[in-house]
Nucleic acid binder design. Sequence first.
DNA 1: CGGGTTTGACCCGCGC
DNA 2: GCGCGGGTCAAACCCG
Length: 327
Amino acid sequence: MDPWIGSQPSLILGLRVGPSPPVVDAMAKHPKTLVEENFLPLNKKGPEVAALESELQRMGEENRRLSEALTAVAAKYEELRGRYAEMVANNTNGGGSGGTSEDGSVSPSRKRKSEGSLETAPHVHHHQLAAEQTECTSGEPCKRIREECKAKVSRLHVHADPSDLSLVVKDGYQWRKYGQKVTKDNPCPRAYFRCSFAPACPVKKKVQRSAEDNTVVVATYEGEHNHGQPPPPHDGSSGVSSKTPAKPPSPPQQAPHHHHVPVQQQHPKEEVLAGEPVAAGAASELVRRNLAEQMAVTLTRDPSFKAALVTALSGRILELSPTTKDS
DNA sequence: CGGGTTTGACCCGCGC
DNA sequence: GCGCGGGTCAAACCCG
């Protein structure tokens, strides 16, 4: 239920770079001068420190902006969901959808498309139907939209080192790769994953480097997990694609920037956001990114930080998870 | 030995 | 009808 997670403003964990924005109450306990005054002795403040401080300031502001944007997106999502609930209330008894045939009992033989477009309908979830309705109201034949409606689709844009050839996107779930293909419009191969945490989980994931910017890996999720988030493994490797073969112990390039973009909410503006927020200058952008990556590396190497993060995350998710599986 | 990855073959929808 | 291309399968392989 990724969009749900993404849509919970209160899931913001207060992991911020730079001075803590006013949104975060827990972090607000700590004075924002932690870095400025405690970390560095006053007498060593020079032009570099001043530059860094201003940099931090800017980062803080940008973080605040992003938080606001996220809140706005979450509000939009809630609004759409509410509207869909209304629509469903008006349109009830239409679907039928024969109950809880959860596993779908896919026949072992290759019956691909006969089951593909329609029999996955029981897994079709409300959010995506809302998208369908908003786009099909014109009544025109919407073949492509129907395709997209087969399963709920969302995209995750992740920064990754171009030298890292593994198409691993850390999203907290366990994935099993079942195929790889070179597509026509992109020289980079596309990898196909299935959720391996629950055998009956219908979720699939496609991971491919962006053709335009090979530092960006685009993960496309189809469907929703019919199980909870798997607990992270003890070694802290965040339990993704549990075996990552012959992958050098590269730094966690993918951790710093995750932009989860539900497809049906994609606006051109958000596309920009998904790539990387365009800020004042490219140079400062680079500085910021490097700084963020370094911090991420430092933090993720700290076992106690990992433990604390895991505790916070799981507690938060449990605390906030809706009572119904899918509302 | 079990589970995951690799990779060539196959299936099927779609455009021409 | 045919070819192309995306998605999936499954045997072989790899690794702990």
